[in-house]
């Protein structure tokens, strides 16, 4: 009976959504003939050499929205990400994984191991190019970080967890790396304000390019290459935070179940 009621509710939900689309809830032309006015403003001001008041100096509209026009949103979203990782880590408090140096016999066949060794280099290169070019071509910190996080996971699966730890990617190292990334994001957010305080002129948190009432800002060009002020630094640090945050979780998921159960039993006996 309860299941039937639930099914009814879900069918009603689908019907209601269909009705909303059919009666013009998304505009009477589906899809619309032109973008909405807010989106048009974002598209025009993303890279606009003729209007230095609002521009983000980045040809990619998505990155300029993520880290400039709506930078505070993204900062708090990063905070949610950080808290979810911390919550997962706190469930594994006190669990220590043993070290092993004899790791040759573990993992998949030698063919796959060799191919993965080659591929890991390609993955890191692709991730770096996605993240560091994020203000010019599609990409950015989140994309680069998610891409880079697959490389340690692939090593963990193909070789073993112990091989990854022998490479130097231990839990504490990764936690430090993630903290450096988050610290970098914070520092970059305050950089324009610090420059403004030193130059004795008004400035804002999350300021990228100079504004009419706040003439300081980060340079859009270094030499001849466009770095779009703060956007390059945000992408760079975000990549480290995301990649290291995910890798530490995979490292904990890779601990064999028998070890954890043994440690839990010891802990229960102590109390």
């Amino acid at each position: 009976m309860r299941r039937l009621l639930g099914l009814l509710v879900i069918v009603l939900f689908i019907t209601l959504f269909a009705l909303v689309i059919a009666s013009g809830g998304l505009g009477y032309e589906v899809p619309p003939l032109r973008v909405r006015e807010l989106a048009r403003q974002f598209l025009i001001y993303a890279y606009n050499p003729f209007n230095t008041t609002f521009t983000a100096k980045s040809p990619e509209a998505v990155t300029s929205i993520v880290w400039d026009f709506r930078g505070l949103d993204t900062l708090f979203e990063t905070l949610v990400f950080y808290l979810a990782i911390i919550g997962a880590l706190s469930l594994y408090r006190g669990v220590e994984s043993e070290r092993r140096t004899e790791v040759i016999s573990l993992g998949l066949s030698p063919i796959v191991k060799t191919v993965t060794k080659v591929t890991t280099g390609i993955i890191i290169a692709v991730a770096a190019s996605i993240a560091l070019h994020g203000h010019l071509t599609p990409g950015g910190g989140f994309q680069g970080g998610a891409t880079a996080a697959v490389a340690p996971l692939l090593i963990l699966i193909v070789f073993s967890k112990y091989f990854l730890e022998n490479l130097g990617l231990r839990k504490n190292v990764l936690l430090a790396l993630r903290s450096i990334g988050l610290l970098g994001i914070g520092m970059t957010a305050f950089s324009a304000l610090i420059v403004g305080l030193m130059a004795n002129s008004p400035a804002y948190v999350f300021q990228n390019q100079p504004k009419p009432d706040a003439p300081v800002g980060l340079p859009a060009y270094i030499g001849d290459s466009l770095i779009s002020g703060t956007l390059w630094f945000f992408n760079f640090f975000e990549m480290f935070a995301v990649a290291a945050g995910f890798t530490v979780i995979f490292l904990l998921l890779g601990i064999p179940e028998g070890e954890i159960l043994k440690q839990l039993k010891e802990e229960a006996e102590e109390h």
């Binding site: 998949l108 699966i157 193909v158 073993s160 998921l253 890779g254 601990i255 064999p256």
Partner: peptide, 14 residues
């Protein structure tokens, strides 16, 4: 690789 490891190995981390 994931499915191969799942089918072949005893633990995913080893």
């Amino acid at each position: 690789i994931y499915v191969a490891k799942y089918l072949e190995a005893r633990e995913m981390g080893e």
